[in-house]
Amino acid sequence: MGKIKVRVKINGKERSDEVEPRMLLAHYLRDVVGATGTHIGCDTSNCGACTVVMDGKAVKSCTVLVGQANGREIKTVEGLSQNGKLSKIQKAFLDKHGLQCGYCTSGMLMASYWLLKKNKKPTEEEIRRNLSGNLCRCTGYQNIVEAVKYASELIEKEGEEEEVVVESQ
């Protein structure tokens, strides 16, 4: 199969690779980039474990061909903490016990990160609706909702993290 060249900025770092055009962004991140924090939990775009933020918008990376990501900027769970310091949404998930097995967590974090970018003070209903594309089998969601609320409070109190710009290679 012929290959295509893609140039993608991942967590602030630019890279280019030659890949099969049929490759999904989720597999590209996991198998080519080695960013295995992005998980795959289904094959029908239902579960949201593979959620990443592409050009500022949450997408399910199992539904994006890597060619569609060409020239774009991707943020994955690995890009949430800055200089070894957990971001507010990560801290909130830990403090509110918003995870158990950890498998859906990356997608939950990225969907929540995006939600809080567009809506700094979401209501409980808005949180639940915005996370409806991310399935969790362990927590019953209550603590995840609490965590997003708590992160929203932290952001209100302390402000958003500054995005650290990583120099491209």
Binding site: G37, T38, V77, L86, L94, L99, G102, T105
Partner: peptide, 9 residues
């Protein structure tokens, strides 16, 4: 669960 929120599981 720190490793999980960092995607390091």
């Amino acid at each position: 669960g720190q490793k999980f929120v960092e995607g390091k599981g």
